[in-house]
């Protein structure tokens, strides 16, 4: 765990102002429980909010093989915006070369699960 619930409360009010309430709720729940599913909901919720065109259904419901660029129209700035905010929320630092290898929703989930939860494989 990289953040305490108290830190998460403060961070959510500062950094998730204007995001759908479900993102902040998942973030606070993750800070309490450390559950991988909650983490996924935060990361995918942030990405979904940043996407210029809304996806056909919530990202958490799409297959993990969904491609960020080809299927969701995610440009490189949207990607770095998402990673920047997620790094800030979870107080982690992701290596630039690792970011370049993220191309699907599962890649994104796995990226954060490895860094924050120490998971070797993605937990869907």
């Amino acid at each position: 765990m990289t953040i305490t619930p108290a830190e998460a409360q403060l961070s959510a009010s500062e950094k998730l102002n204007g995001f759908p309430p479900a993102v902040a709720e998942s973030y606070l729940a993750f800070a309490e429980s450390g559950e991988a599913t909650r983490l996924d909901h935060v990361v995918l919720g942030v990405l979904q909010f940043y996407l210029a065109q809304p996806p056909p259904q919530p990202l958490v419901e799409l297959p993990g093989t969904t491609r960020l660029v080809e299927d969701l129209g995610c440009d490189s700035l949207t990607m770095v915006d998402t990673l920047f905010l997620a790094e800030s929320l979870f107080n982690i630092r992701l290596a630039d070369d690792e970011m370049a290898r993220v191309s699907t929703l599962d890649d994104l989930r796995g990226h954060f699960q490895r860094h924050i939860l120490g998971h070797a494989e993605v937990t869907a």
Partner: peptide, 14 residues
């Protein structure tokens, strides 16, 4: 993300 503006303007997130 936390900014607000009058109704009638559609401003893309990008």
């Amino acid at each position: 993300a936390g900014w607000r503006w009058p109704a009638g303007y559609t401003i893309p997130k990008d």
